[in-house]
Write a protein that binds this DNA or RNA. Sequence first.
DNA 1: ATACTATAATACGAATTCCGACAAATCGCA
DNA 2: TGCGATTTGTCGGAATTCGTATTATAGTAT
Lengths: 158, 158
Amino acid sequence: MEETFRRSLYSELDDIDYGIVRALQENARLPFTTIAKELGVTEKTVRMRVQQMQDEGVLSLVGIVNPVKAGLNVQSFIQVAVEANKLDDVVATLNEIVEVRLIVLTTGDYQLIIQILVRNYEELAQFLMNKLNKVPGVTRVNVINELKILKSKYKFIR
Amino acid sequence: MEETFRRSLYSELDDIDYGIVRALQENARLPFTTIAKELGVTEKTVRMRVQQMQDEGVLSLVGIVNPVKAGLNVQSFIQVAVEANKLDDVVATLNEIVEVRLIVLTTGDYQLIIQILVRNYEELAQFLMNKLNKVPGVTRVNVINELKILKSKYKFIR
DNA sequence: ATACTATAATACGAATTCCGACAAATCGCA
DNA sequence: TGCGATTTGTCGGAATTCGTATTATAGTAT
């Protein structure tokens, strides 16, 4: 049998959780035994906490590729204006599109900001003409190309 | 002695690299032995490739916290217009500010888009008034609050 | 083509880590 | 206080990681 119990949904992270997160955001493969020693708890405790935080969407342990090194040379933010009553549908459609890595509901003149990754400008053009502008409910888009990423960090906890 | 050799800077990832990346972007803690079996190479090979890709900034294995679950409830994109000759200085200054998790040079009316994470609107106000607007060279800002993240994926490679 | 050098892959044993079952401790609450 | 549920600790076997030594491969100059 797997571990079936579950802590009541995380209201707040405690010191041990923060310790774990602080360690893993540096290096997702840090041994649980190391973290445990540092925090003064058992490896099993660390293991269970990590499992729970992952299960509840608090923590993700992922490998992130430098997009440019993987041939995804063109990255853009795109602001998208949407007819109010079509928002759900538009989001659902965008969700299925592989180029889209981020969809955020925002304040401002546009309802959404999305971020896309493509190999080159040809693909960007294809995406805009054949995909985004054909989604019913999209009324206006504002493309902001990313020329260079100057800082990008995933360490949110200090 | 550590592993001192180094592959000539990655021009392109080969099939094994892609296999490794594809596996790790799902789960950063997947055992190297598992990946190795899948790809038909040795565990040591996988281990060395991962090390190299990390050293060269191609791959990062990180734990990412859900900011809201960690009390960072307010997230914003901020477009920043900068005097042309002050761009370097502004970027250097923003780089040191803990709330700033992303700085991107962009096309469009503003030179930069930054993303910030703070605990609440009070902190956002403090950031805008006491930090961002006091950076010499910043002429205009456009704050776009993130109301809800509807999609966010780190799996760039398919 | 051959030899040479640097890099990469494999083989493999020892050390470490992970895993899961069970027991003990703690927490929440009636 | 007592009870049930959850969390933490203990511990031994299985799996993984790590480092060294060896072999293979690619690129280059002779």
